[in-house]
């Protein structure tokens, strides 16, 4: 099923999202960094904080929402869901393959972000020293933390034929996630909410963002644990709903 899903990604518009969003994030972050030299300290840390600020709060989760809507739109169009459901695969495998293929695109999006951060930092902003290796860890952790967002957006897009409605719900999720993180309700509650988990992960080790934790096991462990638990629960729920709901 995963190979079949990967075949569907060929020449798909999903890749445009994986490229455009990091370009927007790095462009906005670079402009912000360059325009605020007086306020920000010079160097990779400040530059990185500007890039991941909006990317962590909105861009990444919204990108996942658009990717999930586009991925399920392929199935809603042309009655491809009938084809999908007429295979011997169990619904858990169908949903699982869709989640895996989406995570692959998200990983490419993260790789694109890292590459652009380094290229712009070195060649455009002329930052001193080598880019810190921690950014690779944060980017990878971002992929893991995005798993529940992928799962929940995939579930919404599977149930709702509209392209925009799940994306709108995703935007609402970003707002709620940010609210949970910065309203003093953080901790366990924010770790149980997919969108705030992404923000928490991308802000790790980011000195420029208030309340961000350090990049250590005490911070990473709960994020990974919460991501695995939430994703498993959402995957199981998706499989059950797909199995029991009528195809209209």
């Amino acid at each position: 099923m995963i190979l079949a899903e990967l075949t569907k990604l060929r020449r798909s518009a999903l890749w445009a999202v994986a490229i455009v969003l990091p370009v927007l994030a790095v462009t906005a972050g670079s402009i912000n960094y360059a325009a605020n030299q007086g306020v920000l300290s010079a160097g990779w840390g400040s530059y990185w904080s500007q890039v991941v600020l909006f990317y962590g709060l909105f861009f990444m989760s919204m990108g996942v929402a658009v990717l999930a809507s586009a991925a399920w739109r392929m199935e809603h169009r042309g009655h491809n869901r009938n084809l999908l459901m007429s295979t011997p695969a169990r619904t858990a495998a169908i949903v699982g393959a869709k989640i895996v293929s989406l995570v692959l695109v998200v990983a490419v999006m993260q790789a694109m972000l890292l590459t652009l951060v380094v290229v712009v930092g070195v060649f455009v902003l002329d930052l001193e020293g080598a880019p810190p290796w921690e950014y690779v860890v944060v980017a990878l952790l971002g992929v893991v933390a995005a798993l529940p967002v992928v799962a929940v957006q995939s579930l919404l897009s599977m149930l709702i034929r509209s392209f925009t409605a799940p994306v709108a719900v995703g935007l609402l999720g970003c707002a709620i996630g940010t609210g949970l993180l910065y309203s003093g309700q953080g901790g366990v509650v924010s770790h149980l909410f997919p969108h705030s988990l992404v923000t928490s992960a991308l802000f790790l080790g980011n000195g420029a963002v208030a309340d961000s934790a350090g990049l250590d096991l005490a911070a990473v462990g709960p994020i990974v644990f919460a991501a695995v638990v939430l994703t498993t629960a959402l995957w199981a729920l998706s499989a059950r709903l797909l199995s029991q709901r009528d195809l209209s």
């Binding site: 075949t7 798909s12 042309g78």
Partner: peptide
């Protein structure tokens, strides 16, 4: 059922490859 399936952005060969992979 209802209408023929098919992923429009892919070729006929790629669509059949999807079916081949889904059904082994």
């Amino acid at each position: 059922i209802e209408a023929p399936p098919g992923y429009g952005h892919l070729t006929g060969r790629e669509n059949m490859a999807i079916v081949r992979r889904m059904l082994g």
